[in-house]
């Protein structure tokens, strides 16, 4: 059997870390939650991460910073941004900059599934 893709969820919001991984697992992936971009980078699980679910605005290193950091390291991990703020313009810009998708909270499980599928193609 093909190993399940590991999706890393990076969000400082506890409720997100609480709820999202379960949903992701239900959707058929492996999930891990990290409270900050730094935690993720220090986790040692970067190499096995197949996709990132990144909160845009986080204290300290933001989601964008993390994306940039990974690109500088030459790691081409697909990134899906999640944010409570933002609009179509923001979403479009992020996608131009290389994000797979930008999901605006609250988003449906189907929206999440589509994004994950696109990222892991």
């Amino acid at each position: 059997m093909q190993q399940r893709a590991f999706i890393a969820v990076v969000d400082d919001d506890e409720s997100v870390r609480e709820a999202l991984p379960d949903l992701i697992r239900e959707l058929g992936y492996e999930a891990g939650a990290f409270s900050s971009a730094e935690e993720f980078l220090l986790s040692g699980r970067i190499s096995e991460t197949n996709c990132l679910l990144l909160d845009l605005s986080m204290p300290g290193m933001t989601g964008l910073d993390l994306q940039r950091e990974l690109m500088q390291r030459g790691l081409d991990i697909p990134v899906i941004f999640i944010t409570a703020h933002g609009d179509e313009t923001v979403r479009r810009r992020l996608r131009e900059q290389g994000a797979v998708e930008c999901l605006l909270k609250p988003f449906s499980d189907t929206a999440l599934l589509d994004a994950l599928k696109t990222a892991l193609q």
Binding site: A19, E26, A84
Partner: peptide
């Protein structure tokens, strides 16, 4: 509001 809402949707979906 968004927070609990998002949580509600996610958790309910799950």
């Amino acid at each position: 509001l968004n927070q609990p809402l998002a949580g509600i949707i996610t958790n309910a979906s799950t």
